[in-house]
Amino acid sequence: MPYVSNEDAKVDEQTAPGRLTKILDSDMFHSFLRSKVTVVAACGTLFLFLLALLAPWVAPHNPFDLASISIMDARVPPVWMEYSDPRFLLGTDDQGRDLLSGIFYGMRISLIVGFCSVAAAAVLGITLGLVAGYMGGRVDAVIMRIADVQLTFPAILIALLIDGIAAGVFGSIDREIFAFYILIVSLSLSFWVQYARTVRGSTMVEKNKEYVQAARVIGIPSAIIMARHILPNVMGPVMVIATINLALAIVTEATLSFLGVGMPPTQPSLGTLIAIGNDFLYSGEWWIAIFPGLALALLVLNVNLLGDWLRDALNPKLR
């Protein structure tokens, strides 16, 4: 006599809960709420992004408006120090530009460069990683050897080399005009390897899973299998890398600008501002370098905190 229980292979007819309820109820969202540091970091990141995005509206001055800048206001210290000027909360730089506004605008440029290069690196790296992992054999060997050679040079070195080459090709006057694009090319060329290696690794795991074999048995062509089946399943680690990479891209851009091969002083990013301020460090005008530096550190720290949490939350082994 078979024993009958209430459980049923047939799926309940009840309506599936809405997407938002599902997200709010997910383990991931709860792990997010449980980590107070992460919540603070998320709010901080959002706040800084908004400041950068809305810089033209929230900044007290426009540092690019030559008419409003006066060299008379140069090197004014922050408001809590002697000889300060209440118009300039954090003081001014060597040309009399308001430092706080400069930081907002600089953050905007840093973030644009960061996002663009992360996007370009991700597209390049994911494509190559998918192809290498799925095809295997010679294609894989070639792509991975290139990646190996690339890994021989740290990002900063590649970016410096590309910049040097660009200067050789364009001449140094055009370099200023193309600085933005050169930066993005050099940053994305130095970061794609990480995506490619990670995606290749996960692709090699995924392609041996039976759902991919099932798709092949159905007869679906490789390109569609890669795009529709494998890609969505390898995106988890990519998100983690992209977040951490955004932080790294911002830092690298700042470093290049600091070294004088990134954004020019006419379009200053945070790194350019620090480079300008560095010259005045010894003469006691520390704020010109330190405040943009702190802003940079704060931005990167917040993004890194988010990336760190995302990595732990997406790692099933650490649950």
Binding site: A247, V251, A254, F258, I274, L296, A297, V300, L301
Partner: peptide, 11 residues
């Protein structure tokens, strides 16, 4: 890891 190397140097 969030502080850029050059800024650590400056500090």
């Amino acid at each position: 890891i969030s502080l850029p190397t050059f800024f650590i140097g400056i500090l």
